[in-house]
Design a binder for these strands. Structure first.
Lengths: 158, 158
DNA sequence: AGCGCATATGTTATAACATATCAATACGAG
DNA sequence: CTCGTATTGATATGTTATAACATATGCGCT
């Protein structure tokens, strides 16, 4: 799995490809990618940075798509539940998923300075967490794996 | 490592032992465990649940130790930096560390219903995260590993 | 078409979490 | 004792998130 985000890549293609996949994913699963939801996803895809709900709301408001907090939070809830967006708990912020489709357990590398986020493979997490859980009868529903630090560019700047 | 929190144990001893260890830890490191900080730690230790900063503040306020948010946040910042308390990012809440001393990378099992939290071993996280980080030049400063779900008691209740 | 149900949006208000700032005080090293 | 640093007190504000209720839209069914 790649750690896309700190590497150069064809970003326009990356965005439009992701949108297309999101559309077919919603179609396949009977989910409705309404204008606000679709635009919210686009805004997040245009960055590889985590955006706060109010950052997103500001963009939506400019475009007349709604100006109250619930507009942003509803769109984000939908996108997160659909697996199209991840919440970065360490920042209380959100980032578009860059490799939709797989039922994945993501792990994130998060730059505390520029909020650039790379999505890595966290598939090993449920394995070792699962051991502890089994011992106690705990049932895991969701895992969060986040590493914060400095990306290469921000190390150079400092 | 244990997953203390979902098991019965001698809680009074667990608390007083932890306080004693915190005292010597602070002494050894030139840190000042002032009355507010000490009481904040006690309050957190008395639960194995995550408490919000304002939950803590309410207790401190009752006892005349301060009633403004910065009182709670300053105490929590100190305790987190000292390694005596962990922040649970998924809940924006805080929990006392139950095995102080070791320079540890904790992993948490968090009940979304009762907020009971068990601290497990997350030492494998930096290993596999480290690989992804090395590939990109990212420097990890801190890791968050949290699994949310239902504890045995809350499964039974449901 | 008209009805009924589920989903989605609009809107107001407020809850919950967190920090900036500045003044006052306590503490320890020299 | 005095200087510098750490801590506390206090006010205000910033940021993130949800509750609650009204309205509108989409869609299957008769």
């Amino acid at each position: 799995m790649s750690t896309l985000g700190f590497h150069d890549h064809d970003h326009d293609a990356c965005v439009s490809e992701a949108i297309r996949r999101a559309e077919s994913h919603c179609e396949d699963n009977g989910l409705r990618l309404t204008p606000v939801r679709r635009r919210a996803l686009e805004v997040l895809l245009e960055e590889h940075r985590a955006l706060g709900a109010y950052d997103l709301l500001a963009v939506l408001a400019e475009e007349g798509l709604g100006k109250q907090p619930p507009v942003a939070y509803r769109a984000l809830d939908f996108l997160v539940k659909a697996g199209l967006v991840h919440k970065i708990e360490a920042l209380n912020a959100f980032i578009a998923c860059v490799h939709l489709g797989s039922d994945h357990a993501p792990a994130f590398l998060i730059c505390r300075n520029c909020r650039l986020v790379a999505e890595a493979d966290g598939s090993q997490t449920p394995v070792f967490m699962g051991e502890a859980a089994r011992d106690t009868g705990f049932v895991i529903e969701h895992t969060v794996v986040e590493a914060t630090g400095l990306c290469p560019a921000c190390q150079d700047a400092a």
